[in-house]
Simulated scan of single mutants.
Amino acid sequence: MPKKGKRMFTYKRCTEVDTDAIYGAFIAGFSDYIIKIDMSKDNFQKHFFGPEGNSHEYSVIAFDDGKPVGLILGGIKVYEGLKTLRCGALCVLPGYRGTEVSHKLFDLHREIALENNCSQMFLEVIAGNERAINFYRKKGYEKVYDLVYYSHSNPSGINTDLPSGFTVQRTDIDVLRSFSREIRDIHINWQNDFDYTSYFDEHRYYGVFKDANMVGGLSIHPAGRVNFLWVDPRFRNKGIGGGLINHAVKELNLKKLAISFPSNASLTGFVKRLGFMKDPITQYEMYLTI
């Protein structure tokens, strides 16, 4: 527990401290989180400073007399055309909540965004975590998207075949990334973005073609996580999306599927028709323009 009386907290960039302090603050800060987090130090380092896109340079840790008591992880990239600072995690040890720590961490987070000429700040938060949501709103964030999750426990039952005249071919991340840049009608959440999937060498990429023209694409992990699925609007409702997934299920021998996406009525209807079931978790994507 924190000492009584006025305390002098210190704050450091994560480049100034060792991994043990960062990991210790993370595990202790999320010890009572809605979702149980059980992660080794090595996996924490690889995940949060790998595909999640956080950088030690843009992350800040709080100390009370040498004890790590709070942490905010940050990562910067050009996201949907705007230089963006994302909050990859914010946690404060239970005994230090209600002190200055969370506010100061976020003030320093905003300073990092301004120092690096970011146009916006961004984060995800679990729906129902009202304390966190209210805190972010007080900091100026607004909810823009609902991020929903679906899963399928029997993908071999998806027997949709591609219509005549369409073929599926394996491709690579660069082809599918270039293809996605031409799309104007979708928002890809941070953890489905190609910068994220580029960290996984085993990730698979498919294109669906009519003659020599690519009219759809699929990015999927061999464990069954779908990160990108899109079909040209001119060719929708013909079984192409289902045919793409069916092709990947058979080629990868998938026993389960998972997909997440920002609220989208047509995609929601599509996954339900294929037999996906909605997971209990929903997140909000919140933005702050600066």
Rank of each mutant, 00 (worst) to 15 (best):
K3I: 14
M8S: 10
Y11W: 04
Y11P: 06
Y11A: 09
R13W: 02
C14E: 03
T15R: 12
E16C: 02
E16H: 07
D18F: 08
I22Y: 00
G24C: 08
I27G: 00
I27V: 13
G29K: 05
I37S: 00
D42T: 09
F44L: 04
H47M: 06
F49P: 00
G53H: 05
S55F: 04
H56G: 00
G66N: 15
G74A: 04
G74M: 14
K83T: 13
L90E: 12
P94T: 03
V101H: 14
S119Y: 12
S119K: 13
I126C: 01
A127M: 06
G128R: 03
N129Q: 13
N129H: 08
I133R: 12
N134V: 13
Y136T: 08
G140R: 06
Y141W: 15
V144A: 14
Y145K: 10
Y149I: 00
Y150E: 00
S156F: 12
S156Q: 14
G157C: 03
D161A: 14
L162T: 01
Q169R: 15
R170G: 02
T171D: 10
L176D: 01
S180Q: 02
R181E: 10
E182H: 04
I183V: 10
I188V: 13
F194G: 05
D195H: 12
H203V: 06
F209G: 02
D211K: 08
V215E: 05
G224R: 01
W230C: 09
R234N: 10
F235D: 08
R236S: 04
N237P: 02
K238E: 15
G241Q: 04
G242F: 09
I245T: 08
N246W: 09
H247C: 11
K250Q: 10
K250C: 09
K256S: 01
N264I: 02
L267G: 08
T268W: 00
F270W: 14
R273T: 15
P280S: 02
I281A: 06
L288P: 03
L288K: 15
I290L: 11
